[in-house]
């Protein structure tokens, strides 16, 4: 048996596959390639498979991680190629390897946030953004797991953010806390809309770029 990890891309159509549906999808992908997933013990055995940092529906990512256990004793060689034969459009495995580091050591997430302005970016937007996110406290409304609304201060979870502007687009290169608790980069757009509605974008798009541990080393 082996504990393996997949590094994969989720984009385009696949960005609309929900977390649960993605688990189901992978449960079917592995047997197609002859991999036998290990199952939990108990009355209703389920395959041992988990997604390290679930991606919100609609966002894309270059760096999703999925952990799984197989009955075979293998190191992951050739698995990426094999799985890529039969994945839905927009999913692509970059590599597969034995799990070396526990998922809890994943601490930071780099993402690209794009704000669309259909009528052109209002003058002063990037300055306003820089000012807004240099404050001590920027609150956004967020739904908890139990569907209640709470106020969240995004600043402590935001490690760095660089704003640039091009044509009808403002782009941010952000590094945020990944988990416990993490920050969904899309909330920066919500924060902007709430605090400075005159700069509210028409649409916000997020793509995860890279994962790091607490020291800022790439996490695999």
């Amino acid at each position: 048996m082996a504990k393996l990890r997949l590094l994969f891309v989720k984009e385009a159509q696949a960005s609309y596959i929900s977390h649960l549906d993605l688990m189901r999808t992978f449960q079917r992908v592995f047997p197609r390639g002859g991999l036998e997933l290990r199952h939990s013990q108990g009355f209703h055995p389920h395959p041992l498979i988990s997604i390290v940092l679930p991606l919100p529906v609609g966002q894309s990512s270059d760096c999703e991680l999925l952990d799984f256990e197989v009955e075979q004793d293998i190191d992951g060689t050739g698995i990426a190629e094999m799985l890529n034969e039969g994945l839905p459009a927009g999913l692509r495995v970059r590599s597969c390897y034995r799990v070396q580091r526990p998922a809890r050591e994943l601490a930071l997430l780099r993402a690209r946030l794009e704000l669309d302005y259909d009528g052109g970016v209002p003058p002063g937007t990037t300055d306003a953004l820089r000012e807004l996110f240099s404050r001590e406290e920027v609150l956004v409304e967020k739904r908890t797991k139990h569907k209640e609304l709470t106020q969240l201060n995004v600043i402590p979870l935001l490690r760095s953010v660089e704003w640039t502007q091009e044509d009808a687009l403002v782009r941010a290169d952000v590094v945020v806390a990944a988990q416990n608790p993490g920050l969904n980069p899309a909330l920066l757009a919500s924060a902007l809309t709430a605090a400075l509605p005159q700069y509210a974008p028409d649409f916000a798009r997020v793509r995860r770029i890279e994962l790091y541990d607490a020291e800022g080393t790439v996490f695999r």
């Binding site: 159509q13 929900s18 529906v57 039969g86 994945l87 459009a89």
Partner: peptide
């Protein structure tokens, strides 16, 4: 939304 985008295996 996944039901509106196609791209399935």
């Amino acid at each position: 939304p996944a039901r509106y985008v196609g791209g399935e295996y």
